[in-house]
Simulated scan of single mutants.
Amino acid sequence: MTDFQYVQSVTHEELVLAAQLIDSRDDNAHPLNHSVFFDSRAVVLAKNAAGEIVGCAAIKAGEGPIGELGYLVVSPQYRRLGIGRALTLKRIDVAKSLGIT
């Protein structure tokens, strides 16, 4: 199985690529509001060995100790490999580091 890296997005370019991944999802019943997404408290990325973004997930905008997880998307060709679970676990770690309980 390919190794994946799970990192918090730090550049605007990564956020744009993550938004494009969300926009390309096959169940796009609710189009992404880009300005709301870009205001997320944190966005976590899954990258393959080549450094390509193959999944993303966010902690939605808000304040205080309560946060909402959202925007979990994995590229179709990378599904069923545990990426969604790993993104969720990484988001929990990031949330704790941000003081979200």
Rank of each mutant, 00 (worst) to 15 (best):
S24V: 05
T11P: 04
V43Y: 03
K96I: 00
S9H: 01
G67E: 10
R79V: 03
V43A: 10
K90I: 00
A29S: 09
V54T: 11
T101G: 06
A49Q: 13
R80G: 02
P31G: 07
S75W: 08
V36G: 09
L87P: 07
E63Q: 11
T11N: 08
A95Y: 00
R80L: 13
L72T: 09
S75H: 15
V36A: 15
S97R: 00
K60I: 04
E68W: 06
G67Q: 05
V7A: 08
V36R: 14
G51W: 14
G82H: 05
K90N: 02
I92A: 10
I59D: 14
T11C: 03
G82V: 04
V7G: 01
L87W: 08
S9C: 13
L69K: 06
I92D: 02
L98Y: 00
Q77D: 15
R41G: 07
L15G: 10
G99N: 01
H12L: 08
D26W: 14
A42C: 10
A50K: 13
A95N: 00
T2F: 01
A29W: 04
R25A: 08
Q20G: 04
S75I: 06
V16L: 12
I22M: 04
I66R: 12
A19E: 03
L17V: 13
N48I: 10
D93V: 00
R80S: 13
I59S: 12
T101D: 11
L81D: 05
P65F: 14
A61W: 11
A19G: 08
G70M: 08
T2E: 06
T101K: 05
A18Y: 03
L69M: 15
E13F: 11
K90T: 05
D39R: 10
G51R: 13
C56T: 15
G84S: 03
L32S: 07
V36E: 14
I92L: 11
A50R: 13
T88H: 12
Y71T: 06
G67T: 02
G64Q: 13
T2A: 06
R41N: 05
A42E: 05
F37Y: 14
L45V: 14
V43W: 03
V44I: 10
D3Q: 12
